[in-house]
Structure formats: C-alpha cells, structure tokens
Design a protein around this nucleic acid. Sequence first.
DNA 1: GCAATCTCTCAA
DNA 2: TGAGAGATTGCG
Length: 811
Amino acid sequence: MIAQVIVDVPVSRTNRPFDYRVPGWLSPLIHVGSRVVVPFGPRKLQGYVIGITEDDGPEEALHRLKDVEQVMDDTPPLTPELLKMSEWMSRQYLCPWVTAVQAMLPAVLKGKAQKWLTASDLLDEETCSRSGLLWELYRKRQLPLAEVEKQFPDEFMLVPGWIHSGLLSTEYQVRDRITKKQQSFVRSLLTPQQLSESLASLSARAEQMRRVLEVFLQHPEQSFSVQTMRDEFGINRSALKGLEAKGWIAIEQVEIYRDPYANRRFQEKQKPDFTPLQLQALEPIITSIKESSYASYLLHGVTGSGKTEVYLEAIEHTLMKGREAIFLVPEISLTPQMVERFKARFGADVAVLHSALSQGERYDEWRKIIRKEVKVVVGARSAIFAPFENVGLIVIDEEHESSYKQEETPRYHAREVALWRAKENNAVLLMGSATPALETYALATRGRYKLLKMPDRVGNRPMPQVHVVDMREELHSENRSMFSRLLHEMIADRLKKQEQMVIFLNRRGFSTFVMCRSCGYTMRCVHCDISLTYHKSNHTARCHYCGYTIPQPSHCPECQSEHIRFFGTGTQKVEAELAKLFPGIRVIRMDVDTTSRKGSHEELLSKFRQGQGDVLLGTQMIAKGLDFPRVTLAGIIAADTSLHLPDFRAAEKTFQLLTQVGGRAGRHELEGDVVIQTYTPEHYSIQHATRHDYPAFYEDEMLQRRRTGYPPYFRLVLITFSHEEVPVVVRGAHVMGDFLRQKVAQTTILLGPVASPIARVKDRFRFQIMLKYRDEPNVAELLAQATAVFEEWNKQQKVLMTIDVDPYVLL
DNA sequence: GCAATCTCTCAA
DNA sequence: TGAGAGATTGCG
C-alpha cells in the first residue's frame, strides 16, 4: 500500500504529492484525507493523504520509499469533497495545495514539527550533576530544542559535543494542539431496589449521601455532572467520594463540548406569516431545493424586508429533504441576535463558527459537524468549508460584504467557493443583500443567478425618511460643530420622546494622523511608507502595518513648535461633543477600545436593547444587521469620508454603508428618520442612497466602471512584489511582467510594474503589476506559468511575490 | 522551509 | 589544506 502525501511545506518547490509506504499495522487506519506524520528529508512533518494505491508496483521502487510514521486521527478530517475543493482552490488562487487544505481545518489540527533533545542511557546522575541543562534533561528525558536555547543560552553551544559523545540525541516530533474538555459525571452502579436498601442502611447522620441516593432513585438511569450535583442538589464532593469508595456510584471523566451558549435558553419563536413578497421569493427557491438540482439565486431585498425569514424557511425545507445547510454571515454581523434566531428555530442542530470563539471552542463546533451531530452551520467566511457531505443549501447573507474575501493566502472569496460547492453538490446557492455587489447584480441581470426582488418592508412599513445635510452650508451659517442644526434638533427630539438612535461615524479613509500645524510635518513610520496613527489610550503614535510605536511628542521634531496634534474625528470625540451639547445623554460607544474584551460586544448591545442608552455610537460594526425596535433615528456624521479613497469601489462602498445604516431606523412600529451629513450632497451614490434606489445607483456606477475599465467589465489580478532593495524588486517584477505581456490576449491590459500605492512596508519596497482582462481563456494556467518563470529567476533572489485574484484591497 | 551538501574564498 | 560562508539542492 502506497500513500500519496502532500506535506506541510507551503512553497512551490514542494507543492506536489510524495509517495510513502504504508506499514501493515497502519493500513486499517489510513484513509484518503487522513492527517499523517511522515519523514521528510532529515525532518518529520505533518502531511495529508491525497490518494492511496493498493498496488505497490515493482519491488525496487517500493524499496526506495520511506514509511508513513503515524496516522493522526481515527476518522480523516478531510472529506473527499473538501480534498477536491482544496485542489481546485490551489489552482484557482495560485497557492500551495497544503495551504488551501489548512484553510479548511480548525487551527488546532495544524501540527507543529519541533526538534527535541533526548537524553540517552549514557546520561547518569554522575555526569549530569555537572551542568544545569543535563540535569534538566535527566529529569525530564526530553526538551524542545528551541526551549533549550532560550533557557540555557550558555550551555547551548556545548550541545553538539554532547550529541557527538552519545549523551544526547535529537529527534523530530509532530504534535497538534488538540485538547478535549472533560467533565466529571456521577453514575449510579446500583439497581433501584439496591438503592432503596442502601438508603435504609445509611446512618442517620449521612445526610448528603442520603440525598445523592434519593436523586438517583428519582432519576433512574441518569447521570449527573459533579457540578450539577453541587449546584442543583447541594451535594459536595466529599459525599460523592464516600459513595464511590463504597462502590455504589462511579465518578467518570466524560468528554464534553465547549459550548459558549451552554447556559443560555433560546425561546422558540412563532413562525411569522409570510408577506406576499416573501412567498413569491420562496416559491422558486423551495422548488429548486425539492428538485435537488443546482440553482443560484440573488435575493435583492431592502433593509427590513424580511430576508432572514426567507433564509430560515429555505433551510427548513433543506433539512426536510434530509440535506444539510450552510449559512454564511459577515464576521461583523454574527451577532448573538442572529445566533439566537437559529438556535431557537433549529435547536441543537446548529453549529456556530466565528472568530470570537477560542481555538478549542471552534474545534468542538467543527467536530459536531464532522460527526454529523448537526445539520446547519452558521458562520463567517471559513464556515463555507464545513465538512458536511450532503450540502443542499448555501446561504450567503449580506453577499456584498468584503469580509467574504480572505486577505491572506489562500486569497479566496467565499462566494466563489460557495458557487463551486453548490454546483458540485447539486445544491441551491442563495445570496441576499439590500445592496448587492456590482459583480453579483451584473451576473443576475444576465441570468447567471436568478434575481428575486423584495422591494418593500415587512408590514408595509415605510422606508425611513432620508435627509441630506450639506455641511458646507452649515459652515457658512457659522455652525462649526460636527452636528448639523437638523441632526442636533432631531437628537433633542428623540431624547424628549425617549426613543433611541444610532450615530454612525464613517471612519474609512479617516486616519487619525499626527501633524504639526505650524510647519505641516506629519509623523511617518520609519519602516513603512505611511503615516502613523494616533492612539489615545496610551498616547502613542503607531504604524498599523508593522506595529512601530513611539510616544506622542509634545514638540514638533522639525520646527520645535508645540502645535503638533492628531487629526481626524474619533468616536471618543463625538461622544465628548454629545455630552457637551446634551447634558445627561446616555451614550453607548462601540469601537475597538470598548469591544476588545471577549463578549463585550454582546454586552454593550444588550445594554442598548434594554434601554440603558439613548445613543449607540460607533463605526462599521454598528452598521449591519442590528434590529432594535425603539431606534427611530440614524445619523451619519460624515458620509463622504469613504467617497474619495483611491479605490474603484469607493462609491459602491459608500452607497452600501449609507443604505445599511439608514436601514437601522424605523424597522418596527415607530417611523424612522435618517440624517446624512456630507460635503458632496450632489454625488450620485449619496443621491441614490437617499431615494433607496439601488437600480439607479447600479446604472450610474456601471457607467463609471465601464469607463475606467474595472469590474464587472474587467476582472483583475494584482501581483505584488517586495524586497529590501528597489533594483531587485523592480527586476523581479519585470521578469514576470515581460513574460505576461508576451502571453496575454489582445484585449487584456497589463499595468506596471509600478510602485505600489504604499511603496514600502516593514523596510521592504513594493512593486505591483495589475492585470485587467475580459476574455482570457485560462488565467490560472497563465499565472501558473508566469510564476514558474519568476521562481526560476528568483532562485538567487529573495523577492516575495503574491498573486491576488479578484483583489479587494489594491494597496 | 529546512538542513545537508556543494562550491568558493581566503588565510595559514 | 581546511575552515567558514554562501549558494544550491533535495526532500518520496
């Protein structure tokens, strides 16, 4: 038996399967998709089995192979589908296969190969008394080499000599970080009859023991955790120990799941009556689900139109069909509210995956999926890799969100992966948004996705009234405050009526940079080509690319002026202003500072829900998916900060943001207002957002994209190079650029190589090539060839190159 | 990606 | 000639 294995060395040189012999004793354990430990060169590494051949071929060829050393799991973590998907990803996104595989698995499964120092039998008490390190090794037998270097720097240089003399040896070990949470459970070993008899035989003073037996009499065949015994029945540990000693009960360690929602009850909500629009949207979806054939839908529904109910219903039909469902939400809107809705509807059938989970919790949720204990997965981007084997429905909520694009290798887009997976499984793909990505909407208008529309809110509630305030006029009227007179007035009004409001600060593009007012000097990072960001909490200026931090200076380093300060509006500043203008106003501020602690996000929102605040103030994180009945005003402090970014999606993102924030107001009985403050009220993305007119925005924006040659008209590939020296990085970029220029189609535009907009990061200079194409039969193959050419050249250099297919961030 | 191995340089 | 550094190669 021979196993084909890809090893955990994510470089192109080793990006291919290696053959290993499977020793007889491992053959029942090993499967395609298994994690294994294999010897690789002088080391040992973790790898994944991508194929197994029973036929060994000629004897002498077999002889040259090494053995698989270990199979790491009983059941392989990779299903055949995931394996196929990872191969597709590695081709599609130009990344090593093993990198794609690892993106699909929980982080604790990534094995770490370490070199260990082991004591041999020659090391006796006599020898080791001479040195601290040897003594330590004599006691513990082995230590990781890295640890040794840290703890015994003085003796580290003696290690090679000791190895040579046979006192010590080195050895590679691969370990993953799987841990399983255990809890003590108590179980009765007696029959009910024996229980009664034993109860009678107990001394009158054994009150606690008596109670334990009574509990078991009342609940035969049940076991209880030690914790429950204590908390619910008031029985302490010693009583249990006593009974265990008598042999009447057993205390056992049982593996349990780390469930972040363990102590929460979820109320089952009555299914609402569907509106005609919802029914109309549901009909074709349900038909497709029943047919179990591939179909894709774009559900374009305004905020408050009840998209979530449609999703839930579709999931229910999928489960009725005996298939599984994946529900993707943007990281940011994976709120407790959302989880609650799912838990209430599908109970224990749901696994939840998001970034706030600890690695262990994440692993436990994942195990529920692979063990087929759940039927539905709710999660952020990476939940698209849920190891189901019969996926019938994939829902992508807020389909336009940029968090679906991963910004590290593998640079995949969850929407694309979902599309592949839906086709592979004859499943239904359902994408929903109030403001679809242009790419998606364009495909929908061309029939690639079926377009479903829900243009009205549930219960015929009106869309909120949107007021646009021209901040230039405010300035002319001597209003220098960050609040316009209208917004000011409306805040006062809501305070009087005791209604709630959401105030949104558009921070995209706002850098809180540090500048000298007298000479114009701005503080920049010494390693990167960007300004430092001011951090109020510890009065430092910090580079958010490399982490370089210096204390905020009191004088300008250039001209010694004292007028050096930070610029930009922060949430703290808005909060202070609100407190000044409206004494007694209760503001709940949500930003990185107040939500960094685990669970604090949830805490603040529930405070607001309970009415412990008048204003919810925050950045992007409050724009999405929140639903509070008493919110009747949404204020946007500066709508256009994101409009003038050097990003071809700037207008689209602004439109989306305004629409989403506006959607927070007046979702229930009370009607809502939205105030948009801007310096460019005439801009089409602001104008169309005001009228809730997505199609009009789409038309205008498509014209821009056609004119400038951006998606959806052209598709992009961004190739970035970096190196410490400019001439080297330029040469590298040209090697690849020249090759591509020869090979691309006539209609393809190749820009560069040019310096990247952020030309230096961490002391490395960056250059880039942009590929814009419309009709390129096989981009992936072309890029793979170019990569090979580049890597041949790069053998002598150390230029780093990354390829971003359909990039979101162009910096 | 890492470590063994090969190749080249330089000083004794 | 041998050590040491730097580049190259192979990993099944």
